[in-house]
Design a protein around this nucleic acid. Sequence first.
DNA 1: CGGCATCCATTTTGATACTG
DNA 2: CAGTATCAAAATGGATGCCG
Lengths: 222, 222
Amino acid sequence: MTRRGYRQYCATARTLDLVGERWTLLIVRELLTGPKRFKDLGDNLPGIGTGLLAERLKHLEAAGIAHRTRLPPPAGTPVYELTGAGRELEPAVLALARWGRRWAMGDRDEQDAFHPGWAVLGMQAAFDPAAAAGFAATYEFRVGDTTFHARVAGGAVESRMGPAQHPDAVLEADEETFAGLANGRLRMRDAVRDGRARAHGDRAALTKLRSLFPAVVTESRQ
Amino acid sequence: MTRRGYRQYCATARTLDLVGERWTLLIVRELLTGPKRFKDLGDNLPGIGTGLLAERLKHLEAAGIAHRTRLPPPAGTPVYELTGAGRELEPAVLALARWGRRWAMGDRDEQDAFHPGWAVLGMQAAFDPAAAAGFAATYEFRVGDTTFHARVAGGAVESRMGPAQHPDAVLEADEETFAGLANGRLRMRDAVRDGRARAHGDRAALTKLRSLFPAVVTESRQ
DNA sequence: CGGCATCCATTTTGATACTG
DNA sequence: CAGTATCAAAATGGATGCCG
């Protein structure tokens, strides 16, 4: 009856006691890009099953990582949203993503699902603060009918779903191409040159884009 | 038969496919402080059972994260050791530890195990690069009959089990005290003032120590 | 010690049907 | 849509025995 735990007085183990079970960190990943409805969470986590999803959400609430609330009127739809503690899991999730970009991203399998929301985090994981020093710009990304944007400033990046207010540049690509970009298999410049991605807007911002979110693929010359 | 996976083309999910199962990241944590024997791994992971530990180690080998080798002669004991890919999991493990120090470290429960090796990572998670800028020193820590050290230089820290070559300062404390320091529940200065920890060595290095590894506990003044 | 094999009691999970 | 209820299929924990 009592939840299974590692029973170790260790910060890593305690964290895993709270978010280390199957699906939990992926739910956090979903919520990192904004509040979501029960159904949307389920749709982005194929295979989880409503029962387990409900259980995990209850647990995250009990742990103070997420909470159930309602979107402001007139929508009023019930959604789940991260708390402050939950948002602070972002560095850990990004660290895992960074490792995955480097070591776990073979080609995409037919079976593998892909949702543009994941690309948002993929881009954040790819972000190179050094390249962003002393630079500021806002980018908008369009993938099929999904849009998100990234605001670069002060050597940091902030990404969100939805369109940007005044984007300096816009990048447009199909899902497959974007998956490659976000997961480090494809270089921005190659995608644009091949016409798989279309870019427009401020020329300096577009040039900078390539170094802000470097791909992982071997530094093939040229 | 086929391993269970999330089947998502997402860097976070792929990483969790490889290291997200129960015990796996704790095995990585153990190996981050150096190669270990099968038995020592088991001893530091109470409850895992030899079968599951063997299965996890095989999986980590297959994934290229760890490998089985032998200590150089004359010891020759078989040990498990991280590969390059495995060592690169350190940022992710430390990020989880950092979150845990902040949000998951209630008091230690009677039931909770504690091993000094965990403190090594706890200290690394606590490390504040900003405070270390332009500073260099080597510290040795003694907990019961266990010794480890941290070398601070170039705004970074490197910790290892075992004594330091030429420590600038030495900190000595019992296990309970050290657990509190590593997990952020106890401030260095308080532990020293109370006599729960004994420090000696270079005075400047000792003073700096307090800011290099700040505690998490509320900034209660004085 | 290093590890695999086996048996068994519990937990977790996955899939689906069902209710407000 | 949100979430509960239910049941079968894994995964895990613990004990124990074995063999190099």
